[in-house]
């Protein structure tokens, strides 16, 4: 009798264990989703509030209703209006000029530096990597006053001298570019380059025709990160820009209202929304390339 009861007991125990595991798994999933939801709310809440305020009538600026009320497009018109002395449209163009120039130069220099650091074995390689790391650690605020003095001596702080904004920006973007690309290049299959060399390519041709096209996702990711870093730069731009060259970060901070001592919060929020939206669209469009570029080099195969 005991031999017949045993399988039944085991089956019941198995079912119980299965149910317990299933329940535990569901609870674990629920906790995961809850954590994700909290993170998303935490990250997106400021942006949500910015967009809600951007669409709110100026008379209801401090209305704390969490959803859009008194919706108007006037703030966006006011952001582009030049009647109060703001030049937001010009600042947007300036930011694009500075961002594209910085990204292009940083990528041109960074690709070769990263390739050499990842591919070549030369004495002092890690010394150079350490120096690049040191440069990226250097506090930007320490550079403001010496650079200000230098640029004013050579006459870069007046008129349309974009180089006063582009060159210091490159010094901050370049370490980021070199580091990201070195990690990417170091994980690439070098057998491909060796095969190209055996087929008669020079080292330069192998790099240009074989390795560079393969590195496209990494290059693309790095370029986007460099552009975002340049687009968001405020500290140096605030010191080195003129009325003609000031980028959006500075222009928004200097927005003036229609009345004296009136802080135009809703216009600032509208301008903030205009500045943020292109970045969000760019990241959403190229999400797949960015993720593959960022994770490449993270795991050794």
């Amino acid at each position: 009798m005991s031999t017949q009861a045993l399988p039944a007991t085991t089956a019941a125990a198995n079912t119980e264990t299965h149910q317990y595991r299933h329940k535990s798994q569901r609870w674990q999933n629920a906790r995961g989703y809850l954590g994700l939801a909290l993170l998303i709310i935490w990250g997106l809440a400021p942006f949500y509030w910015m967009v809600v305020t951007a669409f709110r009538d100026v008379d209801y600026t401090f209305d704390t209703t969490p959803w859009p009320t008194h919706v108007t497009m006037q703030n966006f018109q006011a952001a582009f209006s030049t009647s109060t002395g703001n030049h937001f449209g010009r600042a947007l163009v300036n930011s694009v000029i500075i961002g594209i120039s910085t990204t292009t130069i940083a990528m041109l220099v960074g690709v070769f530096a990263a390739y050499a650091l990842a591919r070549l074995d030369f004495p002092g390689k890690f010394l150079i990597l350490g120096a690049i790391l040191g440069a990226s650690m250097f506090p930007g605020v320490a550079l403001v006053s010496p650079l200000f003095q230098l640029f004013s001596n050579i006459g870069w702080l007046n008129g349309a001298n974009y180089q006063a904004l582009i060159i210091p920006n490159i010094s901050f973007v370049l370490p980021l570019t070199v580091y990201t690309l070195t990690a990417f290049f170091s994980e690439m299959p070098w057998e491909l380059e060796e095969s190209a060399r055996m087929d008669g390519c020079t080292q330069g041709q192998a790099f240009r025709k074989i390795m560079l096209p393969l590195a496209a996702p990494g290059l693309f990711t790095t370029a986007i990160l460099a552009f975002i870093s340049s687009w968001n730069e405020y500290l140096l731009s605030q010191q080195f820009s003129t009325n003609i060259t000031q980028p959006v970060t500075v222009a928004i901070a200097q927005f003036t209202g229609a009345l004296p001592r009136q802080e135009p919060y809703t216009t600032v929020m509208a301008a903030g929304t205009i500045v943020t939206v292109p970045l969000i669209i760019m990241v959403l469009l190229f999400q797949r390339a960015i993720v593959s570029g960022l994770t490449a080099g993270g795991v050794k195969g």
Partner: peptide, 29 residues
């Protein structure tokens, strides 16, 4: 790994590379 040379190894080459990295940072400052 390029940015964490010699992880998990105690070899003299790995130690030399770690020290070179430190030397680069200190040298820059």
């Amino acid at each position: 790994p390029l940015f964490n040379p010699g992880t998990g190894t105690g070899g003299p080459r790995a130690k030399a590379q770690r020290l070179e990295l430190l030397l680069g940072i200190l040298g820059f400052f």
